[in-house]
Amino acid sequence: MPGGRGQLGHDLVASAPLDGLVHAPSSAELDLTDGSVVADAVASFAWSARDGGLKPVVVNAAAYTAVDAAEADEERALAVNALGPELLAAACREHNVPLIHLSTDYVFPGDADRPYEPDDETGPRSAYGRTKLEGERRVLRTWERSWVVRTAWAYGASGANFVKTIARLAGERETLSVVDDQRGSPTWSLDLAEGLVSLACLAVRGGPAARVLHATGGGETTWCGFARAILVELGEDPERVRPCGTEDFPRPAPRPAYSVLSNASWVAAGLRPLRPWREALSAAFASRAVP
């Protein structure tokens, strides 16, 4: 599992049904842009799994996720987000290993008025989105036993994320200004990880017919609404969060105004939908997974 030390990778390891049988290298341990390294890693994993009587599955949770930095570093982002997954798909094809590749809501233009379905027209507005879309295309073109799972607004116990940032700022400032004109679906990485484990179990048996799926927390909100919910979980007054517009926080990379993803494809594949985002946030705080 490339990206094994990241936010989702951490929870995938925790969600694995059998201890000690997950290989989760970090980006420092596995350079996805090096074809020979990727080929050797997949071969070793496939052989060791089969020696133990198991059916291997590769989950690619690695990515160049520095959205703003990618605007000036698109070549590197393309290498990690597109070339790397293509090399990984080729290695998985060589050993007949199913591949689950993680992608993002940023592949869409963000101008919809209803949740995006997997087959809706894409149109990324940022370098990050363009490189992730190219990665999807290369993976699906290279290996027929591959599935792309798009998700959004993820947070969890490992790494930096919006929940941790808001919790920290709430302890430093009287009021917080958070954009209220971007809509999406917060997704607890542990819920997503458990869903991906279920998908992996399907993949070794042939997998769902649809090769692109969406998986996010149920429902939708704005970043401001998300921040207010975080303050509620912290036992703080949510009115300390003040709404503002995207124009108040100019960034190098444009953000989607609307990036809600429909989970209909996920359910149609026979997978349990991720729980509603607000319920998941409460569960994450109750389990002390965040902040």
Rank of each mutant, 00 (worst) to 15 (best):
L234D: 06
A79R: 14
V59Y: 05
P250N: 12
L274A: 03
S287L: 13
T187I: 04
V149L: 02
V67Y: 00
D237V: 08
A160H: 14
Q182V: 13
P273T: 03
P85C: 07
A227P: 07
A46N: 10
D31K: 13
D19M: 09
Y106M: 03
W188P: 03
G135V: 03
D11T: 14
A43Q: 09
G225L: 10
R288G: 05
A203S: 11
P250F: 04
A286N: 13
A61P: 08
G52A: 14
S27E: 04
D19G: 12
L87M: 10
L78R: 11
P17I: 03
T65R: 07
D191N: 11
G129M: 04
V232D: 08
V232G: 00
L231G: 11
A284V: 02
L21V: 09
A152T: 05
Q182F: 00
V38H: 02
L190R: 14
A77Y: 01
S198A: 14
W147Y: 07
A152Q: 09
G217Y: 11
G3V: 00
G156H: 02
A210T: 14
L8F: 12
L83Q: 11
G270C: 13
T165S: 06
L281R: 00
V97H: 04
V267L: 06
F162E: 02
T33P: 05
A167K: 01
L54I: 08
R242M: 13
N96C: 09
I230R: 00
F249Y: 15
Y258H: 11
L88T: 05
G184S: 15
P56Q: 12
T131C: 03
R211G: 02
E194D: 13
S36V: 07
V204R: 00
D119V: 12
S282V: 05
E75H: 15
D119L: 10
R114D: 12
M1V: 14
S265Q: 03
